[in-house]
Design a binder for these strands. Structure first.
Length: 556
RNA sequence: GCGCCUGUAGCUCAGCUGGAUAGAGCAACGGACUUCUAAUCCGUAGGCCGGGGGUUCGAAUCCCUCCAGGCGUACCA
């Protein structure tokens, strides 16, 4: 509908210029918006104001010139007005809205998808939590956002791959092995002191028990380093399996699991460092190797190899991101916790240094989650083992509610996640509000089908046969017609919460309609029309929820 | 100190890359179930958009500055 209005205005501008009503042929961009107040029409444009200086005329005069030149062969516009400082408002004929309903039926599960990706290969890397403990709620937010972004991009024509980067190398893995080994020894009666910086959680002891029942006391008889690295390996595998399982039950499926260790095994880290050394981007100072990130906008240079010969995490990350682009992605998105924001500049610097534009690299920074119970903060720390895991949360409040809450605000704002609120089945917890629409409509359709009453054939041939004149019906159709725009901005800005809010608004319009008007009425033509409308709402709600990874129940 | 994020109704948050009278949910108050699912709806009340400057026809939105909170500023990950 918007492009149609835009076109009508453009034609009017040209016509007005030819008729010498407008002196200049320089037209500013036509922006069509939807006014907040219904009294201002269905669409409005500020073109008369933005052209005032170009045309050297008052906005009002320009608006009059445009309106007098408007052609509307398809009889779309019911009324126009010039208002406020120079807005032109358009009121649309009811029947002109109907084709947007037909589009929903025609496109069905694809409704809302515009091909903006054009097959561009894009990678979304998210969660990527260290395999040193179970996922917690913070990871859950990253999982929900990353997965939704991936779904939305994939829906809008991008070729998306979801990747999880596994930090299965380095110090924290060694600490993990040490923690398990100490617990293992303690099972065998050897009680060494358990350091504070080791992982304290119950799951460590469980893994130690497993190893013990498998190996008995064999690990005590071998070299301690070998024993620890054995424990590291077993523990990381075990924990990673658990992570995969938790993500599965959260409906998050990754295409790739990329191992950090593999970067070392295949020598990619070393090769990358060597190449940068040759290019003089990496240099030696104080016995360590430094990356000249400051040449690429970082505030200072960063160490990649310490003076003890051990590479830093940054070294793997440089190699990893370089490797990603070598795999041929047109764009990569990293979803990180906000506490990593200091990392953005140095990664960008390393990407630029590799000869790739940092514009192809996008970071979504997720602010932290405050887990609450009845308004009181729940303490969380992986190291101390004091935490409620993502699994606990899913078990307690359900996958749908958890995902919806994570996606119900901008990821840049900190999130209070209250377990008690998440369990409520009221409007405190809008996931049910939206799902309820789907259930209600499903119920209506079931009832209608039972008596064989659904027949949309007349509308398929002639959409203007619809009888939808109630204001609540027009509001619904209007909202439905804006869905593709919502998906588009959500994709372009990589902001899933826009869809969440759209769905809540659509749900609200539907519930109002439902309470005021009956779908299954005695008048067959009105009933078929309403069934048609309501089915379109059902499809749109279902599509939107799917993009968020939330189910659309047929009954509640 | 420097950097990133945040500050909008009592609470939790939207506000579409500058538009008209700033929106929604919860909480408060008053109403609607012999009716397609009341997990719903209708109404009332609630605001110096953190403060102050600037940019312009027009600012919650852009710029500057100050204040408050969170996070980060490692040869940790």
């Amino acid at each position: 509908m918007k492009p149609i209005i835009k076109n009508i205005i453009l034609n009017a501008l040209e016509k007005a210029h030819k008729a010498e009503l407008l002196p200049s042929s320089h037209f500013t961009e036509i922006i069509i918006e939807e006014p907040k107040a219904e009294s201002h029409g269905d669409f409005s444009t500020n073109i008369a104001m933005t052209m005032a200086s170009v045309q050297k005329m008052s906005p009002k005069k320009i608006a009059e010139a445009i309106l007098s030149s408007i052609d509307d062969p398809d009889n779309i516009i019911k009324d126009t007005q010039i208002a406020g400082p120079g807005f032109i408002n358009f009121f649309i004929n009811t029947k002109a809205w109907y084709p947007s309903l037909a589009k929903i039926f025609a496109q069905d599960t694809r409704f809302g998808s515009e091909n903006i990706g054009k097959g561009k290969k894009i990678q979304v890397e998210f969660v990527s939590a260290n395999p040193t403990g179970p996922l917690h709620v913070g990871h859950g937010r990253g999982a929900a956002v990353g997965d939704a972004v991936a779904r939305i991009l994939s829906f809008t024509g991008y070729n998306v791959e979801k990747e999880y980067y596994v930090n299965d190398s380095g110090r924290q893995i060694k600490t993990l092995g040490t923690s398990v080994f100490l617990r293992y020894k303690s099972i065998l009666g050897v009680d060494d002191p358990f350091p504070d910086d080791c992982y304290q959680g119950e799951y460590i002891t469980d893994i130690a028990k497993n190893i013990h029942s498998d190996k008995k006391d064999a690990l005590l008889k071998i070299d301690e380093n070998t024993a620890v690295s054995y424990c590291s390996k077993i523990a990381a595998e075990k924990i990673l399996t658990g992570i995969k399982k938790d993500l599965n039950s959260f409906d998050v499926i990754f295409d790739n699991w990329f191992s950090e260790q593999s970067l070392f095994d295949s020598n990619i880290v070393k090769k990358t460092i060597d190449e940068f050394k040759e290019q003089k981007i990496i240099y030696e100072k104080d016995g360590a190797l430094w990356f000249k990130t400051s040449d690429f906008g970082d505030e200072k240079d960063r160490v990649v190899v310490r003076n003890n010969g051990i590479t830093t995490y940054f070294a793997s990350d440089i190699a990893y991101h370089r490797e990603k682009f070598l795999r041929g992605y047109d764009e990569i998105i990293d979803v990180w916790g906000a506490d990593h924001h200091g990392y953005i500049n140095r990664i960008k610097a390393s990407i630029e240094a590799s000869g790739t534009s940092e514009k192809k690299f996008h970071v979504i920074l997720i602010q932290l989650v405050n887990l609450l119970r009845n308004g009181k903060q729940v303490a969380m720390s992986t190291r101390s083992g004091q935490f409620i895991s993502l699994k606990d949360v899913i078990d307690e409040v359900g996958k749908d509610a958890a995902r919806f809450i994570f996606l119900s605000r901008h990821y840049e704002s900190p999130l209070d996640f209250d377990l008690e609120v998440a369990k409520k089945k009221t409007n405190d917890n809008p996931v049910y509000y939206v799902q309820y629409v789907h259930a209600r409509i499903s119920s209506i359709l079931r009832k209608a089908e039972e008596t064989g009453k659904i027949d949309f054939s007349t509308f398929d041939n002639n959409i203007s046969d619809l009888l939808l004149n109630e204001i609540e019906e027009i509001r619904l159709i209007k909202a439905l017609s804006f869905y593709p725009d919502t998906v588009k901005t959500s994709a372009l800005q990589k902001e899933p919460h826009k869809i969440t809010f759209y769905l809540m608004n659509l749900a609200s319009l539907f519930h109002s309609y439902y309470n005021k008007h009956k779908v299954l009425t005695d008048d067959p033509k009105i009933m078929q029309s309403r069934l048609y409308l309501v089915t379109a709402v059902l499809k749109t709600i279902r599509n939107g929820l799917t993009l968020l990874g939330i189910s659309a129940p047929k009954a509640m």
